[in-house]
């Protein structure tokens, strides 16, 4: 029987984890037969590189800043060895390039993917999220894109402190005054480029939804979760599935309104008077996507089936009150392995 070769990124299971490892785990747990997982890594210390029970082989790929052509060439070289069937990118910052080459991956190499189109990807960008939310009747905190600190300072005084300072792709900090905001502005613009986003702070409980859209407006699966414990990096260390029909409905509205294709994470703040504010729509599975699997919905498996053109019906049931508790684990790695990935680019 033919193996199904699935390549995925996001093997950085660190304190601010990428979703690659949980996605790989989900694919192994599902009903797919003869799965071979090929890891795609940017850094030589991404923990997934060294998880040989989960990831069959890993390859280094060029950073997103190298451009889509470099990515395509590298994937082609890996494909020549591994005959990739499906690729699942799991980083926000790399998606643009993957979306750009997805047609070529399919037509020239026969590699399937299941990604949002350019328009739906753009409409949920942080800088225009508020505008989009308004169209769909979803509340979004006031967010302003700033291209210079002088512009940011002006916006910040209009929004009032404290406020959130957010990078174009990742990272968010709370600034309590202009000095802090300036420091974050420069830090974030150096790391992720312009604009830097300033966002009004909405107080309440953080609730998130991991979901899968079919690209025509349908929602294949959605599981809501409340973070029970949050690390100092703002990441969930433990969480629990919720029964919250209103939240699910808002999530379905967002999936439908964006014709979302692929996995995504919707981050909300539920205020004390039960209002839901959409903070962000992340264009890939969250690192806690395995909670969905554990409560009855295997979104990564469904994504692979959709990518291969199979029809997948919507999953509506999940177990409420299922928890995840994350843990860290020290893998023991031989220097030979580190040497190998460094000198050969694969492991």
């Amino acid at each position: 029987m033919k193996t199904l070769n699935i390549a995925l990124t996001g093997l950085n299971n660190i304190d601010s984890p990428g979703p690659g490892v949980p996605v790989a785990r989900a694919l192994r747990a599902g009903g797919l037969k003869h799965v071979r997982i090929i890891g795609l890594a940017y850094d030589n210390l991404e923990p997934g590189l060294y998880m040989h029970d989960l990831i069959d082989r890993s390859y280094q790929i060029p950073y997103p800043s190298a451009g889509s052509e470099a990515l395509f060439n590298r994937l082609k070289a890996i494909h020549d060895i591994e005959a990739i069937d499906v690729v699942i990118p799991n980083f926000d910052a790399e998606l643009h390039n993957f979306m750009r080459i997805s047609d070529r991956l399919k037509s020239e190499l026969g590699i399937h993917s299941f990604l949002p189109d350019h328009d739906s990807f753009e409409m949920r960008q942080k800088s225009v999220l508020a505008e989009w939310g308004e169209k769909l009747g979803i509340k979004v905190p006031t967010t302003k894109p700033a291209f210079s600190w002088s512009e940011a300072r002006q916006m910040a005084s209009e929004l009032g402190y404290p406020l959130m300072v957010k990078g174009k792709y990742y990272d968010a900090f709370t600034a309590h005054d202009a000095d802090q905001a300036a420091a974050y502005f420069y830090k974030l613009s150096a790391k992720w480029g312009l604009p830097v986003l300033l966002q009004q702070i909405v107080k309440g409980t953080e609730v998130n939804v991991t979901a899968l859209g079919d690209g025509t407006g349908g929602c294949i699966g959605a599981v809501p979760m409340r973070k029970m414990y949050i690390t100092d990096k703002g990441k969930a260390w433990a969480g629990i599935t919720l029964q919250d029909d209103r939240l699910l409905e808002i999530a379905r509205t967002a999936i439908n309104g964006s014709r979302w294709r692929g996995g995504c994470e919707l981050e909300f703040i539920k205020t004390h008077d039960d209002q839901y504010y959409l903070i962000e729509m992340n264009p890939r599975f969250p690192a806690w996507v395995y909670l969905a699997v554990g409560s009855g919905q295997n979104h990564p498996e469904a994504l692979v089936r959709l990518a291969l053109g199979e029809s997948v019906g919507p999953m509506t049931r999940y177990e409420v009150g299922k928890m995840f508790v994350r843990y860290s684990y020290d893998q023991i790695v031989d220097l030979k392995e580190y040497e190998h990935i460094n000198t050969h680019g694969w492991l």
């Binding site: 220097l335 580190y338 040497e339 460094n342 000198t343 050969h344």
Partner: peptide, 17 residues
């Protein structure tokens, strides 16, 4: 130093190519 040109300094823990 390995055949691939990988150098490890056990005194400092640094590695090189």
């Amino acid at each position: 130093i390995s055949e691939s040109g990988f150098i490890f300094n056990p005194g400092t823990g640094d590695s090189f190519s």
